[in-house]
């Protein structure tokens, strides 16, 4: 089985974010970038588990982005992906990213294409479903469990008000959510091996940009925390009612 895992490169959650150029661009300076946690913990690790269980197959990671994301790609290889692809263009619109991924994947015969639930910086939850449409494949969103038997996938996924279990003949596109797998820490052997695993750089196709960011703004934080004495917790209930109008 051939699996493609789409990975994005995102600022670590603990990053202090700021914007530059008159609030029109994210300030990359000094920012630690990581593999989007959904892509790493859920998609990639589950793809590797399935390959190990089957004893055959391959797991390719794919990233749309510029050369500065190489460390992120090598981390994915260190965790265990067999090879990596980078489509050499700055990613700035979900549809453009999906078009790049679909153009690469369309004649490669992947049985399974995994995208994360969302990127932790843009929180869009768009790319997976768009890839499915561009490749004319079925799509299951927010997968929390994935098993493969032969050429059939069984997927449990979150829907409003509960969960649904579906079965689908491969090929299939999924977006992955918590539950798929547990995090894996790369070991020394993996890190060494990652240096020599193949990383193919692919030229981008021409795409239209359907959306553009006009401006960014930091959300003002909460300013004052009103402290209530531990001996009078009923005061909290009173304030939540009369002041915060929360109850």
């Amino acid at each position: 089985m051939k699996t493609l895992v789409c990975i994005s490169n995102v600022p670590d959650t603990t990053t202090k974010i700021s914007f530059i150029n008159n609030d029109t661009a994210f300030n990359n300076a000094g920012v630690q970038f990581i593999i989007n946690p959904y892509d790493e913990w859920y998609s990639l690790v589950r793809a590797l588990e399935l390959k190990e269980a089957a004893g055959s197959g391959s797991v390719t990671i794919l990233h749309v982005g510029a050369a500065d994301s190489e460390a992120t790609i090598r981390k994915g290889l260190a965790i265990g992906a067999d090879d990596a692809v980078r489509i050499d263009i700055e990613a700035n619109d979900a549809f453009a990213v999906a078009e790049q991924i679909a153009a690469y994947a369309k004649d490669k015969g992947f049985d399974l294409i995994l995208a994360g639930k969302e990127t932790i910086n843009y929180n869009g939850s768009m790319v997976g479903g768009m890839i499915a449409e561009l490749l004319n494949l079925p799509f299951v969103s927010m997968a929390t469990k994935l098993d493969i038997a032969g050429t059939t996938a069984t997927v449990e996924h979150d829907i409003d008000g509960g969960t649904e279990v579906i079965e689908c003949a491969l090929p299939l596109v999924l977006s992955t959510n918590k539950g798929m797998a547990e995090a894996r820490i790369p070991n020394m052997r993996g890190i060494m091996a990652a240096r020599t695993k193949p990383l193919t750089i692919v030229a981008p196709i021409a795409t239209e940009q359907l959306t553009t960011v006009a401006s960014f703004k930091l959300t003002p934080g909460r300013t004052d925390c009103k402290m209530i004495d531990a001996s009078t917790p009923e005061k909290l209930i009173e304030l939540l009612h009369s002041e915060a109008k929360a109850i």
Partner: peptide, 11 residues
């Protein structure tokens, strides 16, 4: 964006 730490205006 960023889980509510920022907002952006998209065209």
């Amino acid at each position: 964006l960023f889980s509510g730490k920022a907002t952006a205006v998209y065209n």
